[in-house]
Write a protein that binds this DNA or RNA. Structure first.
Lengths: 124, 124
DNA sequence: ATTATATGAAACTTTTTGGTTACATGTCAA
DNA sequence: TTGACATGTAACCAAAAAGTTTCATATAAT
């Protein structure tokens, strides 16, 4: 069912505000008003972002009195993970070293492992 | 350097055309004209997508005679991987079962592991 | 030299996106 | 039952995105 939903997960996470919302919800369920306090925009704008996140199943909603609690649904990120893993196959031999540099926040030094940094370049 | 580049990786992969381009380039380097044959749009439109992919370092360019060969740069996806890994911490215990369902294309049955599917719901 | 191929840039159009304000509804507290 | 709080929807607007066509430039082939 659901031939083509309007918002896919790639689109959903494209917006910085929505990514920040996801991080907020990682801690705990929150109602719209609480969420919107973290942003320099109206509650209504945040509400629209939440609708988009809901459509792509990244968050779920739960009624609690007059509030509606939004909850992170991290399983939806599985699709992204699968997509990523396809490309990792073209990548594997470099990943562990890259991980090292990233985890040590020294990604700026990454040219150290790039072989093309020689003085003169010979073809083939 | 480069305080805030115009296109980040999340935006770059948000567009389906660009994701397809990345898959094409996974196989081999290609010039714009060859790439655009896979799409129902003009070469110029594809060229613009490639510029966006370049800006976010997902592809690199290499001059070859009168052609320009575009090449996949999968390392740029590391940022995405890092972002994802943050959320996996809220996810770990479910991941293996989810993987099973996904790999067997039975994601529709996922409610099997959702505890809230009882007949009546008791508060707290 | 001349023609054909490969490309990017510019100007323009249409659609989508992200935001606003105003309004209607539902729930809690007095 | 009246007032305050929490929310979503509607109508609207501006800016960004994605596409088009036209043009200019560089390289290759004849």
């Amino acid at each position: 069912m659901s031939a083509a939903q309007k918002h896919d997960i790639f689109q959903a996470i494209a917006d910085p505000t929505r990514r920040k919302i996801l991080k907020l919800l990682a801690d705990k369920k929150l109602p719209v008003t609480a969420i919107s306090r973290h942003f320099p925009m109206s509650r209504t704008a945040v509400s629209k972002h939440l609708r988009i996140l809901s459509e792509s199943k990244l968050v779920s909603v739960e009624k609690a009195g007059r509030e509606k609690l939004y909850k992170l649904q991290p399983e939806a990120l599985l699709e992204l993970k699968e997509w990523l893993s396809f490309f990792e196959q073209f990548w594997d031999n470099k990943i562990s070293m890259l991980k090292y540099f990233v985890e040590n926040e020294e990604i700026g030094k990454l040219n150290l492992i790039m072989p093309e940094s020689n003085e003169e370049s010979k073809d083939s």
